[in-house]
Amino acid sequence: MTQATDTSMVELQGVKKRFGDLEVLKGIDLRVDRGKIISIIGPSGSGKSTLLRSINNLEAIDDGRILLDGVQVNRPDLKGLAFERHINHIRQNMGMVFQHFNLFPHLSTLENVTLAPRKLKGMDAKSARELGMELLERVGLADKAAVYPSSLSGGQKQRVAIARALAMRPKVMLFDEATSALDPELVEEVNQVMKSLAEEHMTMLIVTHEMAFARDVSDWAMFMDGGVVVEENTPDDLFTQPDQERTRNFLRKHLASQA
């Protein structure tokens, strides 16, 4: 088991999770260094989304340890409100982007971005607005600040969702199949935004079905199946010369379905 060092941003040690009788994570070890990008691929039901969701405790793990920047995320010793306070604080340092965007439909695009910094960090309206506009600018949607999510396309919604997550100045960004629900022609605009984050050395964990993108953007790639990490390597090696039969089968099937 690796020890946490000052270069590690996210670290998982022997993480286990079960839903009833089904063990979906069977002891996962993972380490993402500061500024690094790791992609997690694998078939549906492999546990990759559960893994990502357990990092910010949207799924509570049953065993193991999760560390963010040296601070333990899961705290079996804390109960009730004490844990609630702890996890709310931890989550402010992690941005999460969901497959189905989950924008707040009753708030304008700008308000979606500014709500958390205003309410959680006590930022005043003017600074929050400036921050919000800067982030919308960044994802190319400054002109949509006043509109409501219902009038945005899927790609635009996801870009707003990224801006919303960035507004808390997170130490790490978690992407849970961020482009899986998008029409093919809208995938690229979201990928572009993620790429620009990569260029700024944001630490990222990306669960994805976009093999080409994963290969292009990440520093490390991981193939999961049946709740275990089957194989991990540099993206070039994992995608071109996988060691494991299961990885080869998955990649073959996946490439065939995308062709």
Partner: peptide, 12 residues
């Protein structure tokens, strides 16, 4: 998903 998005930002 609305709960999850809100909780993931750090809202109680």
């Amino acid at each position: 998903g609305q709960h999850e998005a809100s909780r993931s930002l750090g809202f109680g």
